[in-house]
Design a protein around this nucleic acid. Structure first.
Lengths: 243, 243
DNA sequence: CTGGTAGCTAACTCGTTCGTCCATTAGGAT
DNA sequence: ATCCTAATGGACGAACGAGTTAGCTACCAG
C-alpha cells in the first residue's frame, strides 16, 4: 500500500519512544493553550494534532490541568536556561542596567507564548503555579543580578540608594510584558502597530532611559527649575501631611 | 393571593422592566466572565445567579459572545465616564503628570474587573473589541490630555521635546496594569503581597517619579558621569552624528 | 521462544453546555 | 373589551468534551 509508505523509514515510527511522544504532546498543547486559554483549549484538538492519541495525554499527564501545568513549567524552565547566559558584572552599572533592560525587552518580545501563558495563569489566579514546586527559584537569580548592579552603582555614586531591586525589576518587566500581552487592545485603541520595528526600537530605548534616569541620584533636582515641584521631590518627601 | 405579595410594591416587579433585566444580567455576567474568562464562563451559571432565566440572555444579547461584548463595552464606557472628571490644565506640567499617574494608578488598582476583562480580551486577540464600534474614541481623550501637558511642559522648558504622548501613556498604563493583572504570578514568584498598602504607596511614587524624570530635559547628562554611556545618551538627542 | 511490561490505539460513556421551541403574561392601542 | 406585541418562563435537544474501558504492539529478560 503506497498510501502509508511504511518503508520510507527503517523504523516506521512504530517504535515506542516515550520522550519524543511527551515532547510532541507538550509542544502541541502549548500551542493550543496559548491560542485558546486553559478553558478554551480542547483536549481532542490537541490529540488530533499530535502523532499520538488522546489516551496518551492522560497516560502521561493525568488530566487536562496536569498537561497545562507541565506546559507552564516547561515555559518557565526555558526562560531560566536562557537568562543565565548574560554577563553583566563586567559592565559599569548604568550600562549593565541598560543591557539588562534590553535583554528583558528582547526576550519578552520574542517569546509571546510565554507571555500569554503567564497571562492565562493570572486569569486563573495563579493557582497552578502555586501548586508547582519546580518553579520558584529562577526569580531569585534575576533579583540577585539587579541587586548586584544596584549595589555597585550606589558604591560608585551613580545610583541613588532608595530604590528596591524587586521594584526595579517590576518596572522593567511591566513595560516589556504589557507591550506583548496587551498588543491587541492597545494597538486597536491607539491605532498603532506594536510589532513595527521602529516602535520596538523606540520603546526599548524609552524603558531603558526611564529606568536609568529613575536610578540616577537626585542631581539637585533634575527638573526642579521653575515648576514649583520642590515639595514633592521624590519618595515620601511631600507626604506625611498629618498632624 | 398573599403568596406573591402583589401589593408590597406599587409595581410589583412583575411589570416588564427590560432595562433592569438587562442590567441585572450584565452585572452577573461581568462577575462570571471576570472570574472564569470567556471560555470558562458558563451561561447556565450566569442565568442561575440572575433573577431571570437563560432565555432572557439570548433574548437580549443573542449569544454568549454577544453578552461578553456587551460586558466589555460597558466596562470601557464606565472608564470614560470617570476619566473626564480630572482637571489637569490648571496645574504646572510636572504636577499635572504626577496627578495623572496617580489617578491612573488608583483607577486601575480599584477596578481589577476591568483589568481582567482587558486581559481576557487580549487572550482572544482583541477580536471582539475589533468588531465593536462603540469603543474607540475614549483613548483619544486620554492622549489629548497627555499631549496638552507635554506641550505645556516643553514650552516652559521643563520637559524634553523628544517623547511621544502615546508612549508616555503606555509607560504609565503598563506599570499600573501589570501590578494588577499579574499580581498572582508576580506575588508568588517574588513572595510579595502586591495588595499591601505600603507597597502600593511606594509603587505609585515610583512610577510617578520615573515618568517625571524621563520627561525632564537632559540636564547635561543625568548619569553620564563616569559610566562612559556617552554615545548612547537618550533617544537621538546626542545624536545626529551623521553628516 | 515465551512471558511480562511499558508504550500505545480505538471506541465508548456520561455529564455538561450552548442554544431553541412553545407556551404564557402584561400593557398599550383601537 | 380585544388584539397585538414586547417580555418572560421552563423544558428540551443535540453536540461536545473530559476522561475511561478494553485490548493491542513491541521490546527485553530469561
Amino acid at each position: 500500500m503506497p498510501l502509508t509508505t511504511r518503508a520510507d523509514a527503517e523504523k516506521p515510527a512504530r517504535k515506542p519512544d516515550p520522550e519524543r511522544t511527551k515532547q510532541d504532546i507538550l509542544a502541541v498543547a502549548r500551542a493550543e493553550f496559548v491560542e485558546h486559554g486553559l478553558s478554551g483549549a480542547r483536549v481532542d484538538a490537541i490529540a488530533a494534532r499530535t502523532r499520538t492519541t488522546k489516551r496518551m495525554i492522560y497516560y502521561y499527564f493525568g488530566s487536562k490541568e496536569g498537561l497545562y501545568l507541565a506546559v507552564l513549567e516547561q515555559a518557565y524552565a526555558d526562560i531560566r536556561a536562557i537568562e543565565q547566559t548574560l554577563d553583566l558584572k563586567s559592565l559599569p552599572p548604568a550600562q549593565a542596567i541598560r543591557r539588562m533592560v534590553e535583554f528583558t525587552f528582547d526576550y519578552q518580545e520574542s517569546h509571546p507564548d510565554f507571555i500569554r501563558l503567564v497571562s492565562i495563569e493570572n486569569i486563573h489566579h495563579g493557582k497552578h503555579l502555586a501548586r508547582s514546586d519546580s518553579i520558584r527559584q529562577l526569580n531569585e537569580a534575576v533579583i540577585e543580578v539587579v541587586t548586584e548592579i544596584l549595589d555597585r552603582g550606589k558604591r560608585e555614586g551613580v545610583f541613588c540608594a532608595e530604590v528596591d531591586p524587586v521594584d526595579v525589576h517590576m518596572l522593567i518587566s511591566a513595560f516589556c510584558f504589557f507591550r506583548v500581552s496587551n498588543r491587541y487592545t492597545f494597538g486597536l485603541l491607539f491605532g498603532r502597530d506594536l510589532s513595527s520595528a521602529a516602535l520596538r526600537a523606540r520603546h526599548k530605548r524609552m524603558i531603558a532611559d526611564a529606568v536609568i534616569r529613575l536610578l540616577a541620584p537626585d542631581p539637585a533636582g533634575p527638573e526642579a527649575g521653575p515648576t514649583a515641584r520642590a515639595p514633592m521631590r521624590r519618595s515620601r518627601s511631600a507626604a506625611s501631611p498629618g498632624p
